[in-house]
Design a protein around this nucleic acid. Structure first.
Lengths: 222, 222
DNA sequence: CTTTCTTTGTGAAAAGTGTTACAAAGTTCG
DNA sequence: CGAACTTTGTAACACTTTTCACAAAGAAAG
């Protein structure tokens, strides 16, 4: 194979056109699959094959990748190692972030023992609660601190992501404190919609709503 | 207040036009808020006020409700008690369903103790695993059974919803068995996309993907 | 009762997202 | 090399969802 100069735009979101969140979500799926292919020593794959493995159309795959540059080769497809590297760069897979959890109840403690954070480059470095009986206890190597200490701890530990695992009534209060502590990225497990400044990203995870949607589907069935 | 005959079409999805899933999801949010308002003895609310509380536009609120009928009164808004009742009916809040979980690992056992199921009319009646050491154990009143018994148990217990809480590699196999046992509604926690017949509804809950999206957001920031 | 104000319900426009289709680029093979 | 084949990247189209905008309905006030 000849070494050829390529005009590949491996720039991360170049023309700052808006990229659908669904595209981002699929890129992670592509990355998983591509990594597995690269691992199996499969060197190239076409958008058609990739799409087939993931229940997506070939055009969808190409369009999604197209938002970020030109990674393919006409006639043969995508180089798995190259695409893997490109996706990792685009998706920030090479970086890690510190995470703090507020609320160490049922859900909060489950999160503290959930291995998925670490697997995705997220380090759970601090946990807070306002229940005096919980303060000082340790779960998975993290000592629970008083909620009042949160802003200071966020700064000291360079926390980038705040997780809200408190009841709905207290969620906004926690969000406000996160925002004033400089947090730009919140993962919200409380079933309520938060008001935050524009530059703060909130990701809602609402299992209740998922369950509710299911029962709506069934309600229609019978 | 005079009793007035109203020509309100309180029919559940009347003209069988297609309703966005996002609308359904928001209806649950409206219901929560409306229930809370009704509880506080607030008798009416306008689409504008409701939207403001939920970070949605007034038009969005009206359009969502408009899919199901006419619930408002020009000039004054929506009667909270009426709307609450209507939404509960539309969303099947008055019904309950039986649920079975396959996979009693880290996540599966957390689900078995999660109170949210019951709160939404979902009864966790059975749990399955293929690890012999787990079979026979009891969590939250549910005895873990062998995976092979699942189809029979699904029929005996009139299970409507199957929950997949196994690793990705085994998820499709479990889905297939659910489908052949007659399940029409699957809640999938495995980070993989399932192939099922058209008439089966799959709801994916993929915390990994949510976390990944967060780190993409942060990757762009710095 | 009439005027003024508020708010709904809903077509029409706009924005967002996915699909189709095809020229251009690259590969394969005789 | 040239013909036949494969696959990309993207522009145009189609579909979905949200926003806009306004007539009509009712409320409020005099």
């Amino acid at each position: 194979m000849k070494s050829v100069t390529k005009f590949v735009k491996v720039v991360t979101n170049m023309g700052h056109r808006k990229i659908p969140e669904s595209t981002i979500s699929r890129l992670f799926v592509y990355l998983r699959e591509i990594a597995s292919l690269a691992n199996m020593n499969i060197r190239t794959i076409s958008s058609g094959e990739l799409g087939e493995r993931l229940n997506l159309s070939d055009a969808q795959v190409r369009k999604d990748l197209g938002y970020f540059g030109q990674f393919g080769v006409s006639g043969s497809g995508y180089d798995t190692n190259e695409l893997k590297a490109a996706l990792e760069k685009i998706l920030g897979k090479n970086k890690t972030w510190n995470v703090a959890v507020v609320g160490v109840g049922h859900l909060g403690s489950a999160l503290l023992t959930y291995p998925g954070f670490k697997e995705h480059g997220l380090n759970l470095v601090a946990a807070f609660d306002s229940d005096a009986r919980k303060i000082g206890k340790e779960i998975s190597g993290v000592t629970i601190e008083a909620f009042e200490n949160m802003p200071k701890a966020v700064k000291n530990n360079k926390v980038s992501i705040g997780v809200i695992a408190v009841p709905a009534q207290r969620a906004q209060e926690v969000a406000d404190k996160f925002v004033s502590a400089g947090i730009k990225c919140i993962l919200n497990f409380a079933p309520t919609s938060l008001n935050v400044p524009e530059d703060v990203k909130v990701k809602d995870v609402d299992l209740s709503r998922e369950l509710e949607t299911l029962s709506y589907f069934l309600a229609g069935k019978k």
